[in-house]
């Protein structure tokens, strides 16, 4: 199993957007790395219904996702990893998961967050987490759909 896309999107799987990313990456599997969704069968059921047919969707705690991605890292299966905030990809890195690019595709506004790039809002803390991730050799790109021109965080 190898992550062909690690993406932050607080809407997780939503219809046509995910279809686009599945097509360009060739992945047939989505792992949602989120401690809450991993324990919420109902959320997972709804997300499975939102995924295109033929796509496997799993929700794992961040710890379990890291385990799954590092233990089977030799396999060739392409997988998309979805997270809701910058915190989860940071923890995946800390736990030894390797990826060279982090895609930021959607983070909605809420108290504490300010508009950062197009429709994406981030808090100060989240921006500093992304910057830290970027210093660890991971390219942080803002890109909502595959056809967009990416904007890279320095």
């Amino acid at each position: 199993m190898r992550p062909v896309l690690v993406r932050i999107d607080d809407r997780l799987i939503h219809g046509q957007v995910m279809t686009g990313w599945l097509k360009v990456t060739g992945a047939k599997k989505i792992i949602i790395a989120d401690d809450f969704v991993a324990k919420d069968k109902f959320s997972l059921q709804v997300l499975k219904m939102a995924a295109p047919s033929g796509i496997t969707v799993e929700a794992l705690t961040v710890d379990d996702a890291a385990k799954a991605l590092t233990e089977n890292s030799s396999g060739d299966e392409k997988v998309i990893v979805l997270c809701k905030t910058p915190r989860e990809p940071k923890r995946l890195l800390d736990l030894g998961v390797q990826f060279d690019k982090l895609n930021v595709g959607g983070v909605g506004s809420k108290p504490g967050r300010k508009p950062f790039y197009r429709n994406i809002s981030l808090s100060e803390e989240e921006i500093s987490i992304l910057k830290e991730i970027a210093t660890r050799g991971v390219k942080v790109e803002f890109r909502i759909v595959p056809d967009d021109k990416p904007f890279f965080l320095e």
């Binding site: 809407r11 997780l12 799987i13 939503h14 219809g15 046509q16 109902f42 709804v46 997300l47 219904m49 939102a50 995924a51």
Partner: peptide
């Protein structure tokens, strides 16, 4: 509007 879109996913609750 769309099955699997965010409005649909959140209203499921």
């Amino acid at each position: 509007d769309v099955k699997g879109g965010t409005p649909c996913n959140v209203v499921a609750r």
